[in-house]
């Protein structure tokens, strides 16, 4: 049920994380684990992709991994 999920995958939540520090796609997926949001893996990937396309965050490589970040 929706009430069992304690984390919501929203544009606001993603923005807050990316303002705080640069994150890889894997870092973001860890923040919105399916068992915590109640979404399926496919939904999570699709929703996160849509949100990232809208936010259009800056990108930089740290330790050879692409990280997204936003500035306020």
């Amino acid at each position: 049920t929706p009430s069992s999920s304690d984390v919501q995958l929203t544009e606001d939540a993603v923005r807050r994380y990316l303002i705080r520090k640069p994150m890889t796609t894997k870092d973001l997926l860890k923040k919105f684990q399916t068992k915590r949001t109640g979404l399926s893996s496919e939904q999570t990937v699709n929703v996160l992709a849509q949100i990232l396309k809208r936010l259009n965050p800056e990108r930089k490589n740290i330790n050879d991994k692409m990280h997204f970040y936003l500035t306020e």
């Binding site: 893996s41 999570t44 396309k53």
Partner: peptide, 20 residues
């Protein structure tokens, strides 16, 4: 599992690569 996380990350990056 970490392999599922890897698969999801790969799928997400593939989606975003079309856009970037």
């Amino acid at each position: 599992s970490s392999s599922e996380a890897d698969e999801m990350a790969a799928a997400l990056e593939a989606e975003l690569n079309d856009f970037m």
